[in-house]
Amino acid sequence: MEKKALIAHCLTYHNAVEDYPFADNDFTIMRHPGGGKWFACIMHLQGKLCINLKCDPVKSEFLRKTYKGVYPAWHMNKEHWNTVEVGSVPKGELFAMITHSFELTAPKIPKAKKANKKAEK
Rank of each mutant, 00 (worst) to 15 (best):
A106G: 04
Y20W: 14
W38V: 00
C41Q: 11
K91M: 12
H9D: 05
Y20K: 13
F22R: 12
H44S: 09
G47T: 01
M30I: 15
K78D: 04
A5R: 07
Y67T: 04
G87D: 05
I7R: 10
S101G: 07
T28E: 10
P110L: 05
Y71N: 04
K117M: 14
T99H: 13
A8H: 01
N15R: 15
K48N: 07
G36T: 08
G34D: 12
A115R: 04
T28N: 08
P107G: 03
M30W: 10
N25W: 07
H80F: 02
K4P: 05
V86L: 08
G47P: 03
P90M: 09
N82D: 05
K91S: 01
N82V: 12
T99N: 12
K117Q: 12
M97Y: 02
A5Q: 15
I42S: 04
P90D: 04
A8F: 06
K117F: 03
H80Q: 05
T28K: 09
F39V: 03
H100R: 09
W81G: 00
L6V: 15
F102I: 09
A16I: 14
T12R: 11
F27D: 00
M1P: 06
L94H: 02
F62I: 13
C55I: 01
C41A: 12
F22M: 10
A106V: 07
P33F: 13
E18A: 15
A115I: 03
P72Q: 09
L94Q: 00
M1W: 14
E2R: 02
H75I: 05
T12K: 12
K118T: 07
D26F: 10
R31C: 14
Y20M: 06
C55T: 01
I42C: 02
K65Y: 08
A73Q: 04
E2D: 15
E93S: 03
P72K: 03
D56N: 11
E85M: 06
L6D: 02
V70C: 03
F22A: 11
I29K: 07
F27T: 10
A112M: 02
N116L: 15
G92Y: 06
W81S: 00
I7K: 11
L53A: 00
I7T: 03
I51L: 03
